[in-house]
């Protein structure tokens, strides 16, 4: 089994099975560019730095990739299947403890940076699921978004949306 070492922004090393890394478009490109698949290359001696991903987030990403090893990649931007995307129970349990906090958002940012399509899709779907049945102010409070509206603006936009309530 070939192991490739990923190095997080806080310089933690994570030896990861080569096969798992096929889920990440970004890492796959780096592996190709660094010739890490060549027989002559000592992949173990050439760690891949990931300066945009912290160690605790990278650990979660690897945990997710281990669980989803071998899964086919589902494209999230297919308009026809957006409604059909269901967050599986394992993923729901995986996301839930960090939901509404910066950890889940950091995981989403990492999925985007590392180009892990399935993780990005499920993570975004899990976030969108939290909006269901909530009002704007409730979403704002749950996700800690600062309120930039004046009371007048807030009232105006509430009236704009009144028809849909």
């Amino acid at each position: 089994m070939v192991l490739i070492t990923l190095v997080s922004s806080d310089e933690q090393n994570f030896p990861v099975e080569r096969e798992l890394l096929k889920q990440s478009g970004t890492i796959e490109t780096l592996i190709v560019n660094m010739n890490l698949d060549d027989e002559d290359t000592d992949a173990a001696a050439m760690p891949i730095p990931l300066p945009n991903v912290k160690g605790d987030v990278l650990e979660k990403v690897i945990q997710w990739m281990e669980h989803h090893k071998g899964d086919p990649v589902k494209e999230g931007d297919n308009e026809d299947n957006n409604a059909e995307i269901v967050v599986p129970q394992w993923d729901d349990d995986f996301f839930k403890p960090a939901m509404y906090g910066s950890k889940h958002l950091e995981l989403t940012v990492a999925a985007s940076y590392l180009d892990i399509k399935n993780l990005l899709t499920l993570s975004c779907k899990a976030i969108s699921n939290t909006f269901k049945g909530k009002t704007g102010p409730q979403i704002r409070e749950e996700w800690g978004v600062p309120n930039e509206f004046t009371p007048e603006e807030e009232e105006a936009i509430r009236k704009e949306n009144e028809w849909s309530e």
Partner: peptide, 11 residues
């Protein structure tokens, strides 16, 4: 409806 409510979250 969620998209509309998101418009009420912040500018």
């Amino acid at each position: 409806q969620s998209q509309l409510r998101l418009r009420q979250v912040s500018k």
